[in-house]
């Protein structure tokens, strides 16, 4: 493939890489797995890039390929299977911004989200990214009504985990 295409792609991805990191954050729970998934999503994005047309936003297009890779294409490599340690990835959360209870709640919340299944995680991810139900339904290939119903169920599920 030609150099210009390569250059454009890498530049765009460098700029929008947080989207991929966020997907990895939800779907993996340690540093190695995070990197592994990041790499696979990057390869899939690159493979799909020649067909990318400017009519969609690059970031919107990334959500789709990123989630599809995480839900469908990605095979966990051997070295990443056994770890359940969510704190393995050291994100620099600025603790001074929160009071203790909120921080504690967030920790439990992230842990709870990690217990959801792959599809539920995808819904949560798009919700956190402020996508509307139309986009959620289009990305996953389900109806808008079902996306709403499922989202409400996930909220209840999280509530139960937090307030048993």
């Amino acid at each position: 493939m030609n150099k210009e295409l390569e250059h454009n792609f890498v530049e765009l991805l460098e700029k929008h890489q947080n989207i991929v990191h966020k997907v990895c954050r939800l779907y993996t729970n340690n540093y190695d797995a995070h990197n592994d998934l990041f790499q696979e999503i990057t390869i899939q994005l690159w493979k799909a890039y020649p067909k990318f047309r400017g009519d969609a936003k690059f970031s919107t297009w990334m959500y789709r390929v990123g989630l599809n890779t995480a839900i469908t294409l990605y095979r966990k490599s051997k070295r990443t299977i056994n770890t359940q340690d969510f704190n393995g990835v050291e994100f620099k959360i600025k603790t001074e911004d929160y009071d203790d209870t909120e921080e504690e709640q967030l920790k439990i919340l992230y842990k709870a989200v990690h217990q959801l299944n792959d599809i539920e995680k995808a819904l949560v991810f798009l919700y956190l990214e402020d996508k509307d139900y139309r986009e959620i339904s289009e990305t996953l290939g389900i109806s808008e009504v079902n996306a709403r119903v499922k989202m409400n169920r996930i909220k209840t599920k999280l509530k139960t985990i937090l307030n048993p």
Partner: peptide, 22 residues
């Protein structure tokens, strides 16, 4: 800023690697 920040070169190296998708 809490996410890792990969450089241009790091991403470039990634696209040269082989996929291990199903």
């Amino acid at each position: 800023n809490k996410y890792p920040k990969l450089t241009y070169n790091e991403i470039y190296k990634m696209i040269l690697k082989k996929s291990s998708s199903i």
